[in-house]
């Protein structure tokens, strides 16, 4: 009788469940990475959550202590919080919308073949390479009432001396929008152009054969290809613009009369300037939660559209 007992299959050592000492070894090896993540990622986030539940004002050190939800209750009754939140929404919507539309248009132009395209691309993308502080300095100088473009226009009889786009209630918002667009449009253009270059030319040729016009070619060929890049770019840019502090703080510090104060700017004023870290942390946590929620909703809607599109 031949034996039917099969030879026990030898498993390679790597597939075995590690014994206690080996598991300990593995944990020891990954421990530095885990500690780094915990210390540098989670600790600061958790400390802000904890701070938001405390009274912590550096100018009133003796009043420090656990506050419970006091900071959050104060926030709900704070008119400045609601006003800054409304302005933040307006800022993000207008900035991201215009950056996307103009960035897309720029990418479509730069995707075409023409003489000097390389130079045009380099020039169009150069604002993105300029540092934030330099960007604001350039625009502050341009808007300066005594040394900026307004002064020179006034000397040519256009407009008045002693005025600045950043000081007039009707123009401040748009003056800021233009300054930020200067840097934001290239961001969209770069991402979209990179995706446009991966669209197979055969598809356009086929569309041409089918008699599709420019609009139809865009909606049927171009848009489906760049759609994912646009979703990611708009989300990234929306988060970026939500948290925009450098440009707004340097150019208007939230003024005039608080008309350009975004929520992160209000946080900066409260925590950094007034040294009220407890309330500043509550504002930060609220902004963090709002942003997380908005991002999730946006991604959910975008992925839903994507499935329908398929």
């Amino acid at each position: 009788m031949s034996s039917t007992t099969a030879e026990p299959v030898r498993r390679p050592p790597a597939a075995r469940r590690p014994t206690g000492s080996r598991a300990g070894h593995a944990y020891l090896l990954i421990a530095p990475a885990v500690v780094l993540v915990l210390v540098f990622l989670f600790y600061p986030v958790l400390s802000v959550f904890w701070e938001s539940l405390r009274h912590h004002n550096l100018t009133r050190p003796l009043d420090d202590g656990f506050a419970g939800l006091d900071n959050y209750r104060a926030l709900l009754a704070d008119e400045l919080f609601w006003r800054s939140l409304r302005f933040t929404a307006q800022w993000v919507f207008v900035e991201v919308g215009l950056q996307f539309v103009l960035g897309l248009a720029l990418a479509l132009v730069l995707n075409r073949t023409f003489v000097g395209r390389g130079l045009a691309r380099a020039l169009a993308f150069s604002p993105w390479a300029v540092s934030g502080i330099l960007t604001t300095t350039i625009w502050i100088l341009l808007y300066n009432p005594t040394t900026g473009i307004g002064h020179y226009l006034a000397s040519m009889g256009i407009g008045e001396y002693g005025t600045s786009l950043l000081s007039e209630p009707d123009t401040t918002f748009w003056a800021l929008v233009i300054a930020e667009l200067w840097k934001g449009i290239p961001f969209f253009a770069i991402l979209i152009l990179a995706d446009l270059q991966s669209v197979p030319l055969e598809l356009y040729e086929a569309a041409n054969v089918d008699g599709a016009g420019p609009l139809r070619r865009f909606s049927a060929v171009t848009w489906p290809h760049i759609r994912k890049a646009v979703v990611i770019a708009t989300l990234l840019r929306a988060v970026w613009e939500f948290n925009n502090v450098d440009l707004l703080y340097t150019m208007t510090a939230g003024g005039p009369a608080g008309s350009t104060t975004t929520l992160p700017l209000y946080v900066a004023q409260t925590a950094i300037h007034d040294q009220d870290f407890g309330y500043g942390s509550a504002l930060t946590v609220t902004a963090f939660l709002l942003l997380t929620f908005a991002s999730m909703v946006y991604l959910r809607i975008s992925s839903g559209d994507s499935k329908e599109g398929k």
């Binding site: 300066n144 009432p145 005594t146 040394t147 008045e160 002693g162 005025t163 950043l166």
Partner: peptide, 22 residues
């Protein structure tokens, strides 16, 4: 008697205005 842009003038803006004959 002041520029309307003084609405947002900070130290640097004021000094620039004075120093540039404004």
């Amino acid at each position: 008697q002041t520029a309307r842009s003084d609405l947002t003038a900070d130290f640097k803006t004021m000094v620039a205005q004075f120093g540039n004959g404004g």
